[in-house]
Simulated scan of single mutants.
Amino acid sequence: MDTAVELISGSERDESFSMRKLAAELGTDSSSLYRHFRNRTELMLAIVDHVLVQALHGYQRQGTWRTRLVDLMLRSWDAYAVLPQLAKDTSHYPGTGRGSQRVMEETMQALSDAGVPEELVPEWYHRLVSLTVALISAHAASQSSSPTEQKRRLEDLRVITLGADPAEFPALAHYARRIERLGFTRESFLATMELVLDAVPARQEGS
């Protein structure tokens, strides 16, 4: 798993990672990997889960429910920030092992400790995790694009913002020079998640 993560982190494209390349790096052939994983998808699921396990290393269930959820979110962000090629496809490879189980357990336990009504805990779990994954994937996709693609997207953004007709799009024209291309920093990711946590129907103090 560690070798697979290293290969992915060094790839310019997620598509360049394959079972054949991993086998070669390990000094064997791909048939040996197929004894453990039926296909590339199973391997990717295992890699995602491995990353989650590593991200949660040292995590302690302490502090308020909100503190714990923020910790979980930032651990996920930080883990995938250095793996944009993997992170952009996390929605396709949600993980199927202990890492995923741990995230689910800790998230739902924090919501329960917050006093969220029992019938709403699964719903809020899905909201928090879905948004976290979506933001991480979106950020990763923007970071993993080639320099040429990033430049083209920036030019496209400039065209539709700076070229906006003030008479038809007054707000857009007003803020045009302050709009940046899509992509979240760690701070903006946290600020967005804090807004969502504000809406959690908690009955216990969370800050």
Rank of each mutant, 00 (worst) to 15 (best):
A138E: 06
Q54E: 01
R152M: 03
I8V: 02
M19C: 14
P170Q: 05
A79E: 14
N39I: 09
R38P: 05
S144E: 03
I8W: 00
M108L: 11
H92M: 11
W124C: 12
T107G: 09
E149Y: 11
V82Q: 11
R98A: 12
R127C: 14
A4F: 06
E119K: 04
P84Y: 04
S30Y: 03
D49P: 15
L120G: 14
E25L: 15
Y34C: 10
V51P: 01
R68N: 08
T161D: 04
A55M: 13
I47Q: 07
H57Y: 11
T96M: 11
K88W: 06
F169H: 00
S100A: 03
V51I: 02
I47N: 12
Y175K: 02
A167W: 00
E180N: 15
L45F: 10
M19T: 12
G115E: 11
V196R: 13
A24K: 03
M193H: 08
T3S: 11
A114L: 06
S130I: 05
R152D: 03
R152T: 12
L43R: 09
M44E: 09
P84S: 05
V121L: 01
Q109A: 10
E168W: 10
V196T: 10
R178P: 14
P117I: 05
S16C: 13
S91T: 12
T161V: 12
S112H: 08
V103E: 02
T3E: 11
W77K: 13
R61F: 10
T3D: 05
G10L: 05
V116W: 02
T96F: 06
S11G: 07
Y175W: 10
V121M: 00
L26W: 04
Y34N: 10
T148D: 09
A4Y: 11
D29W: 15
E149K: 03
E187S: 15
E118M: 06
A138N: 12
S32G: 07
S76W: 13
H174G: 14
D198I: 09
M73I: 11
E12Y: 13
R178F: 15
L22D: 06
H126S: 12
L22Q: 09
H50W: 08
V200T: 00
M1I: 04
A134D: 03
D113F: 04
G58M: 04
H174A: 15
Q54I: 03
L74Y: 12
E15V: 02
S112D: 00
V200E: 04
Q62K: 13
T64G: 01
V70P: 07
D156Y: 09
E168I: 10
